[in-house]
Write a protein that binds this DNA or RNA. Structure first.
Lengths: 349, 349
DNA sequence: ATGAAAGCGCTAACAG
DNA sequence: CTGTTAGCGCTTTCAT
């Protein structure tokens, strides 16, 4: 069933023209006289004609739509990215299809296949935590599907990438903790195969080294599913708190890990920052009203979505094959709050 | 460009059959011999054949996709609903297309038109705050497009609806405040033309009346855009706090209004609940770790998405026109925390 | 049991 | 400048 307007055929019949003439007139072809164009366009406007996108897709092999693959939309960072994507895509007349991986490799493969199959004209993807192998993307990339990575990128595929400055995000958060007097700084993160975890870890390690603090492996916990399951964080936390030489601060590296860690510390009735300080990556707008107010590294999600989409549209609309690719690095922002108050200036209990 | 597998034509050529035979074999038609079916299906499986959804859409006038219209995905409640929708839709082989209204009537009309035009087989919609007129939906509904409302429904269109028990949500939250000793209970909400605001208000009013507390209009603030703009809440709050007889508690009715109110109360350095208590609708998983921990009315978002999708699929797959419609009402849950601690048992400062 | 042919709505090469 | 025709990939009569 089609719930929309008339077809080109209807216009042709009504105006005693051929469908091709109408089609050309609507597309403002130089072959068509001004008079006919006006006639057709007026009629079309009056009868609220709109081309059937499905037919156009089939015919042209292009769908005017782009596919998005993220871990989950139930996450402020990703929903901000998606809003950024939509703002640019709609402006350019492109439709978006959102799919979620829930951090699973097989769901990611499904999503990508699904999108490719629905003949999206391009793909915006942030890899799932589980993903190690990107063959499913390489294949499509080889066939010419424009792909732009954002957030969690792969270095095995040469294309545009838009990321945040993960190294400095990790570096600044850790440096801030050091400056505030914390020394035993734990790190809860995802597996190092995902780019963001690796880079944030490197920033963390660099800050420690500069301060002459050894990088203690027992303080670093990797959540295989990026904190998808609460148990992952629970285990990490229990192990950290069971150490002889307990950490006095934690640096966490994703929205989910950060907020779950905070919740668990509450459950354990640990005072933040007196018993343990916390700074984490998160884009939640609630950081300032958490208990305690949470020091946070936030990323320009909306802007990341916009930039990634602009680069993708460049690829899609390019006349010539593109062979020069860019990696855009956007700044992160560290906002310090009570959860990392300096040791010599702890808020009163 | 098509980034996927082979076509029916390829199979036909390879097997020396006609396309129609292959098509029928793939669809397990009774007209085709078992032998040929096996031949075709094996070949298809081996070469990873997958039908082109665009072509199927065009041919059948069905797209195996459903459209979703929500105010914004950047909201825990709606992203939970969407996850519920996806879980059912994917199971049934349906694809979903998500669009956002950002509480704007004109964007809603655009979204709906866009979806209808992309020939979705059905529509799941939660109306925007601005929407008063549902002619854009009536029109499509008349033409036979299956529509199911969730959350914010219209009573001008007869179809399935899935909502939360808004009346009791408002009633219980207000009753709880009364029992905790609060008497001057303000109410910040959206315009009464949206169903949820109206019903929640009625619950609020009922609880007050039962307790013999007059409903004071000066304590009720309607945000025309449902709190989309911070200024709306700011004004509401300023007016409330400027009253001779100030409120001692606030009941808010959406994720966004609730969290913004909390943030603003922080900015004003008001102690919650001593100077003013707060209970609000929100599905944020952070309610327990906010400062103070927030008493909240939460809704079963995931389940709402699932139920709505089930009802929609019933309509889409129905052989006969459906004329008996249901309105499912799901329970809400009130979780009481420190932000509404009883007056005689306030947490220490 | 299989195939030829038409057509969903649109575009585009090719004629006229 | 306009029209005829073919075809995107698939389904579906209607032959054979």
């Amino acid at each position: 069933m089609n719930f929309s307007s008339i077809t080109i055929k209807d216009i042709a019949a009504a105006l005693n023209l051929s469908v091709s003439t109408v089609s050309k007139a609507l597309r403002d072809s130089y072959e068509i006289s001004e008079g006919t164009k006006k006639l057709v366009n007026d009629y079309a406007a009056q009868h609220n004609y709109r081309p059937n996108p499905t037919a156009q897709s089939l015919k042209q092999g292009r769908s005017q739509s782009i596919g998005i693959v993220v871990s989950t939309i139930d996450n402020q960072f990703f929903s901000q990215v998606i809003n950024g994507i939509e703002s640019v895509a709609y402006e350019a007349g492109f439709n978006v299809i959102i799919t979620q991986t829930h951090e699973s490799y097989s769901l990611e493969v499904n999503s990508v296949k699904h999108l490719a199959h629905h003949s999206v004209d391009g793909l915006l993807i942030s890899l799932s935590t589980e993903t190690q192998d990107v063959e499913h993307l390489k294949e499509l990339h080889r066939q010419g599907l424009p792909i732009v990575f954002f957030d969690r990128v792969s270095d095995e595929i040469e294309t545009h990438k838009v990321i945040a400055d993960n190294f400095n995000g990790g570096y600044n958060a850790t440096l801030h903790l050091l400056n505030a007097g914390y020394k035993r700084i734990a790190h809860i993160t995802g597996p190092l195969n995902i780019s963001i975890a690796k880079e944030r870890f490197e920033g963390y390690a660099k800050a420690l080294k500069q301060a002459g603090v050894p990088v203690d492996k027992s303080l670093i916990k990797y959540c295989a599913h990026g904190g998808r399951d609460v148990a992952e964080i629970e285990n990490a936390l229990n192990e950290l708190l069971a150490l002889q030489d307990k950490p006095d601060a934690i640096f966490t590296t994703s929205d989910r890990i950060t907020t779950l860690t905070l919740s668990l510390l509450h459950q354990l009735k640990l005072n933040i920052p007196r018993q343990i300080a916390l700074v984490g990556y998160t884009n939640t707008t609630l950081a300032g009203v958490l208990n305690p107010s949470l020091s946070a590294v936030s990323q320009p999600g909306f802007e990341m979505g916009q930039k990634a989409t602009q680069k993708l549209l460049e690829l899609i609309l390019a006349k010539m094959p593109v062979d020069k690719f860019e990696t855009l690095v956007l700044p992160t922002q560290l906002t310090t709050r009570d959860s990392t108050a300096p040791k010599n200036a702890w808020p009163k209990v």
